[in-house]
Simulated assay, not measured.
Amino acid sequence: MNAIPHATRDAVRVAAVAKHHTAGEHRVAALDGASLTVRAGTLTAVMGPSGSGKSTLLHCAAGLDRPDAGTVTVDGVDLGSLGERGLTEFRRRRIGFVFQDYNLVDALTAAQNTLLPARLAGARAGRRHALAALEEVGLRDRADHRPHQLSGGEQQRVAIARAVLSRPAVLCADEPTGALDLARGRQVLDRLRAVVDVHGGTVLMVTHDPAVAARADRVVFMADGRIVDELGADGAAPAAEAVAVRMAGLEAV
């Protein structure tokens, strides 16, 4: 599979997406006409107050949730045009996932966990592919360890190895450093930056931490189910202080 050219096309396009959830007798709008374009070969961070819709946006962009209205296009494919089986197969082949709680299988080794999605997708991937992916995240020597034998940071790096094994069109990360201390969080961010800077991949990441967001090429801010602001569109790296100021302004509303 060819590598994605760096920042030459759209990896993800979310257009006027609406998504509602039911809370008791009330219908709540998690997304209210949200639109976002993510260029290939970039790391985009999504921030916003609690309840702003950032995780729902990520789940729609990743094909985990179907929007009530609007369109989501990933790697040139309109996800709304796919049936459930087709969407599942597309996610397995073209979308990688990294979550705050790692989602590793306790009974499997790091190498086996790394291979699991590829095996489910029917890909011809073996131990050497797992070892190569673990090498990229600095864990080749931990390939035969099970999750309980690994630190939180190591487990998250296994999750990244698993996500990038098949070189997906986009890697979606939901609070990937949220459960980690500063040092281990930095290691995970270094690996996510390598997905972009070394391999030309694309990362869409939700975070609440301005210091984490400052490692992105672009930071977009959400409020009330919409994108309301951004930093980095001019090519200048977003500073943690500027991100924190924008977030404080949104939380004060």
Rank of each mutant, 00 (worst) to 15 (best):
N2E: 11
N2A: 13
I4N: 08
T8M: 13
R9D: 08
A11L: 10
V12R: 03
R13E: 13
V14K: 04
A15C: 03
K19E: 05
H20C: 13
H21G: 10
H21W: 06
H21V: 06
A23R: 10
E25M: 05
E25H: 09
E25T: 14
V28D: 06
A30Y: 04
L31F: 02
L31N: 02
L31R: 04
L36Y: 03
A40S: 15
A40N: 12
L43V: 12
T44R: 01
V46C: 12
M47L: 15
M47D: 01
P49N: 01
P49E: 04
S52R: 05
K54Q: 03
T56S: 12
H59R: 07
H59V: 02
D65R: 01
R66Q: 11
D75V: 02
G76T: 02
G80W: 15
R85D: 14
R85P: 01
T88Q: 09
R93H: 10
R94N: 14
I95P: 02
D101F: 13
Y102H: 15
A107I: 06
A107C: 01
A110H: 08
A110D: 09
A111V: 14
N113C: 10
P117N: 06
R119C: 03
R119K: 09
A121H: 07
G126A: 10
G126L: 15
R127M: 14
E136P: 00
R140F: 00
R142E: 07
D144I: 09
D144P: 09
R146F: 04
P147I: 15
Q149L: 15
S151H: 11
G152L: 01
G152K: 04
Q155R: 11
V158K: 05
A159T: 13
A161G: 03
R162Q: 11
A163M: 08
R167P: 01
P168E: 06
V170P: 03
C172P: 07
D174K: 09
G178T: 09
A179G: 00
L180D: 04
D181A: 12
R184P: 00
V188N: 11
R191M: 10
R193H: 06
A194G: 05
D197G: 00
V198Q: 12
H199K: 00
G200T: 07
T202Y: 08
V203D: 12
L204F: 11
L204V: 13
V206Y: 09
A211N: 14
R215F: 06
D217T: 06
R218Y: 08
R218S: 14
V220K: 08
F221S: 03
F221E: 03
M222V: 15
M222T: 11
M222L: 15
D224F: 01
V228W: 04
L231A: 02
G235T: 10
G235P: 12
A237E: 10
P238W: 01
A239Q: 14
A240H: 06
A242N: 08
A242C: 03
A244N: 10
V245S: 04
R246S: 03
E251H: 00
V253M: 07
